[in-house]
Computed example of a mutant assay.
Amino acid sequence: MTPAQEDEVLARIAEGLVYTEPESASQNSERRTEQIFDYDHTPPREEGRRRSLLVDILGSVGERTVLLPPFHAAFGSNVHIGDDFFGNVNLTFVDDVDIRMGHGVMIAPSVTPTTTGHPVHPARRVDFARFSGPIVIEDKVWIGSNVVVLPGVRIGYGSVIGAGSVVSRDIPSMTVALGTPCRVVREITDEDLTTRLAGR
């Protein structure tokens, strides 16, 4: 593929248009597969090595971050996390384009933010054709277990996403949202300063 062709493919990816596996091959140098394997197999006592690997893997990483292994990523280099991030086990980043997480984000086990989907008609899925849209998770968001966040979604500041939800559209700040598809069920207010559960 010529540089001009690569630029054309990258432009289509950035616009959320369909592209194929062969067309995306020019991005393979950005994959951090080996480093992710090393991270997932580094003993807990080697905190310094884990931190060093995480800095090498991710596009950017803040301070006081915790990412419990195992985690998985298509690239790793397209993931950006802020300060005071906590990610529990089996976090899977499908990061063909950027996934950006703010400060103070908390993620429960087995969550999948996926920037990439596939066309509905099988004739358009030749050569693993797909499209991608960036994901933004703003500061202080808490995401429950087994949540899937779909391409192009933004989750607003301070929001809570209930366990098992499929987030297919933007979620506004300071709300509790849950379900499949994920929907806002209420706002977060000062009354929540005296309660323990999201639903009470």
Rank of each mutant, 00 (worst) to 15 (best):
P3C: 13
D7C: 08
V9H: 07
A11N: 14
R12S: 08
T20L: 05
E23K: 08
S24T: 06
S24H: 09
S24D: 09
R32H: 06
Q35I: 12
I36H: 05
D38L: 13
D40F: 06
H41N: 15
R45W: 09
R49P: 06
R51E: 09
L54N: 02
L54D: 00
I57E: 04
S60T: 13
V61F: 03
T65V: 15
L68F: 07
L68Q: 09
P70V: 13
F75Q: 09
F75S: 10
G76R: 12
S77I: 00
V79W: 07
G82V: 13
F85M: 11
F86E: 00
V89Y: 08
L91C: 06
A108F: 13
P109S: 06
P109C: 05
S110A: 06
V111N: 00
P113R: 05
G117Q: 09
A123D: 15
R124F: 08
R125S: 00
V126P: 01
I137Y: 08
E138Q: 12
D139M: 14
G144Y: 07
V147D: 05
V148W: 02
V149Q: 05
R154E: 07
R154D: 01
G156H: 06
Y157S: 07
Y157I: 07
G158S: 09
G162K: 00
D170H: 07
S173V: 02
A177T: 06
L178Y: 04
V184N: 10
E191L: 00
D192M: 00
T194P: 00
R196P: 03
L197I: 11
G199H: 14
